[in-house]
Design a protein around this nucleic acid. Sequence first.
RNA 1: GGGCAGUUAGCUCAGUGGUAGAGCACUGCGUUCACAUCGCAGGGGUCACAGGUUCGAAUCCUGUACUGCCCACCA
Length: 787
Amino acid sequence: MKEQYDFKKQEAKWQKFWEKESIFKFDSRKSGKIFSIDTPPPTFSGKMHLGHAFSYTHEDIIARYQRMNGKNVFYPFGIDNNGLATAKLVEKANNVRFFNLERKDFIKLCQSTLKKLTPDFIADWQKIGMSCDFSKIYSTISPESQKISQEHFIELYNQDRVYQKNSPILWCPECQTAIAQAEMEDKEMPAFFNEIEFKLEAGGRIIIATTRPELLPSCVAIFVHPKDQRYKDFIGKTVIVPLFNQKVKIIADDKVDKEKGTGAVMCCTFGDTTDIEWFLKHKLPLQISLGKDGKMNKLAKEFVGLPAKIAQRKIVEKLKEKNLVKDQKRITHAVNVHERCGTEIEILPTKQWFIKYLDLKDQFLKQSIKLNWYPPYMKVRLDNWIKGLGWDWCISRQRYFGTPIPVWHCEKCGEVILADIKELPIDPIHSKPKKKCKCGSEKYIPEKDVFDTWVTSALTPQIALSLIKDKKVRDKMIPMSLRPQAHDIINFWLFYTLARSYLHLKKLPWKDVVISGFVLDPEGKKMSKSKGNIIEPQKIIDEYGTDAMRFWAAQSALGEDLRYSQDEIKIGKRTVIKIWNASKFALMHVENYSPRLTDIKYLEDEDKWILSKFYEAIEQYTNKMDKYEYSRAKEIIDNFFWKNLCDYYLEIVKSRLYNQGDNKTKRAAQFTLYNIILGSLKLYAPIAPFITENVYQDYFRKKEKIKSIHLTRLPKLEKKLYFKKTANDFELVIDAIARIRKHKSEQHLSMKADLKKVFIETKNKNKLKKYLPLISELMFVEKIELK
RNA sequence: GGGCAGUUAGCUCAGUGGUAGAGCACUGCGUUCACAUCGCAGGGGUCACAGGUUCGAAUCCUGUACUGCCCACCA
């Protein structure tokens, strides 16, 4: 073995080796129970970030552990590239907007851009040492995935779970599409809180407060609180909206906050979700002044065609001219923005497709109970979300790039014509229905909308399993064993997958769910581009290596957030080097040794001690790993390896190893070292796959005959290598060594300084006595007296 | 406003009823013989606060404060 470990060279080498030798290829005929993982397909929207490196390391540790524990691991890899995020990346990369291109040209552009960028994107995931089967990768935009998505849509349609409805929907003017409830987020924005005077028809005035004066043309009512003394006499009266002159009523509703603004508020269809509520409850007219492109329409009269923000400024100017603005306060308030682009959400009535599921809330909650949650408290987040659901699932998006909704509409009677299952996947724009409409018409209008990305990614269990050709095997694999993911998308991906699995199969999609936390910056803040505190995993890997990065990631338990700290990465790197050095030393002494079980009978007590310590470590490690507590498992192997093995055993056993010739006690030491080093490497292998593979290949492979350490089995609990009593007694030696070390340290002596005489206090003089020669030799003490 | 989690050494975190732990950082000592990308040793904490249960509480209960996250509100 070479002197220094070159992680850059070796990590690249072993990654290639795994690919070339198909080490992680799934074969359903292999032995062992299947452990299947519903790998999160990363959204194709840019580079891998540190949070990815963190959580994908967690699931990979689990996958590698399960594999070495004898399971036949199905660990696919996919890319989520069918949605808005990908389309936006394509727009940015090519400096275009989708609506300026022909639909088919934009789709072509997406496909060519994907082709160009995908290899580098996947390389990032391979670089962090993921043990997926990269020979078969699914993409959520592939024809196969589209087919699955469309099939399942048709299934739901036939179950009467799909409907189309004209309704107020959350709309992003930037992306020009409907979005789902879950895609909104809060953002603090500065605004003016304007107090505007409205004249009553019968004389008098009322002052309302608003941040959205540009919506005056859509004002359909004024609301006040029923118990507000100030406005008691106004209820039921008619006011005239300034500038636009429509007449609206003053209505009482207890949802009005008396304390806010002037206590009087205008209702516009639609400014926010409360407006929708009032619109429905009080049967108000629908007045839309804002277009899908975020510009004012002709209802805004002279302000037509202006973007909302500019219209707002001009309208306020005009109101000021007429002396109708009574006050204007600068405030910051939280507004709903689209999480993908940060644009303020508008509410527009449009025709959209929905999946009906609000009636199934209780069923979903029951499914949530059946799942095994790691950590358990994450369940509450899903439950809260389910309980709070207020809308059916809006699945349509007004975009070009995505899975088309496979239907046509009859031009004559409006009936929906479903595509034939055998024809899928189809794009209705480019094909025709096979049959006439029931009404006899042959004229149809193709559906132009596409599915939202989550509609398809909620089917990842089905898509992932479609990579397996044998249907019998596939069917047996539902529910899958594990869904790993981060907590930010419990409301989306986890919920939607659970919901769809229930809708289609009445089954859980998986048995276990493990939830990773987030990576925070060194100050404990969320990382974001705007804050400029992004730390790139690629740089860390370049400087310290993947194993070091994985050691860092592995220290955090499931669900726990972890602050990034360079020091912690350095500790990981040190562990890699320590593994290298300790192995190098040990293997130097077992070069010509092949393990023979008969050597057990020559074991010395220190051998029995370390073997027993290792036996206990395996037991505890396995126990933790089985519960997905990899950070605890890491502590156990770290502790064993650094303290017991490197600090004590290797020091104690040195003199026996340096002994020339093939004597029995040396062979026993070699037997011990061989097993302990190989065993430790195996326990470290899920966490640090590269260094362990490297040492294994350099030395153990020719003796163990298995192609990769990652295909070997974890060390077994061998009762005949567990010597509990001897190990307990030997702790006295460890204690004595520590005491002498302390004594020398206090006397400012070298550990190798000779001592004439040392006193050791012990409760077990008799037991310690027989070890005195060993301690004397090891600690350079001529005489030890026990007290 | 509702919910979830957390608060232990300077930092990151273990520790769920029995005399406070680890790693990092810090200090001192020590290098031919696996490793200075090192070894050995040391200093350092009224376990957020206040009550309660108990022979005994970091640990169980109640309340408070603070931090983070999710949800709701956001005219």
